[in-house]
Amino acid sequence: MAEKRVALVTGAGRGIGACIANTLAADGCDIAVVDYSDVSAAEETMRQLAEQGASARYYRCDVSDFSAVKAVTDAVVKDFGKIDILVNNAGVTADGLLLRMSEAEWDRVLSINLKGCFNLIKHVAPHMLRKRSGRIVSISSVVGLMGNAGQANYAASKAGIVGLTKSVAKELGSRNITANAVAPGFIRTAMTDALSEEQKQAMYKLIPLGSLGEVQDIANAVKFLVSEEARYITGVVLKVDGGMYI
């Protein structure tokens, strides 16, 4: 039997991150659940992982905190012995038109969404470097590719992830470490469920495939990018958006 891979997933408490954690566990990975904001949600993810028999641990960590990320990364390596897969999924929004956006709203979103990815890659990469293998997937957004009124901070952070990913792909490729991004479009979440039927219809018109995506669609893309089948793919931004941005 092949040795189990260890995946560190940030923002694994809820939504897309929880689905990624569960999907990778079902694919045979041990999971380091990293989350900060919602302890009970992270515990729910842990319960789901335990239910499918996965070996998992929960680490509460603010990904924007450089030192805390180093400590968690070291702890994961100590507990699991290695990190094969890093999924940078943790992210927040603080929407508002640029003219009304505060410095704090800008800084917070950039710190968590973009600096958080840097922090994780920075501290995980040395471990992958020595193993001469690794898979890094960061969750961007189509908003980072096309822009979105009211989301200057979020769009900038997600565009930043694309540049970061491509640079990391070039820096670490020689060590058999791939770095890719997944850019979700409109995904069905509690937030989109709250939209009116009229708003949903307007949204569907923007999507050639005519419906919202599911969190599982994103997790499936991540599962592929960390697989052996994707060994020759690095530096790409895989849009999972029903054709919304072509």
């Binding site: 040395p126 470097l129 020595r130 820096e171 670490l172 020689s174 060590r175």
Partner: peptide
């Protein structure tokens, strides 16, 4: 040694 090796060793 390439540049990555050197950085890794120094670290």
């Amino acid at each position: 040694f390439d540049s990555l090796d050197k950085v890794d060793i120094v670290m």
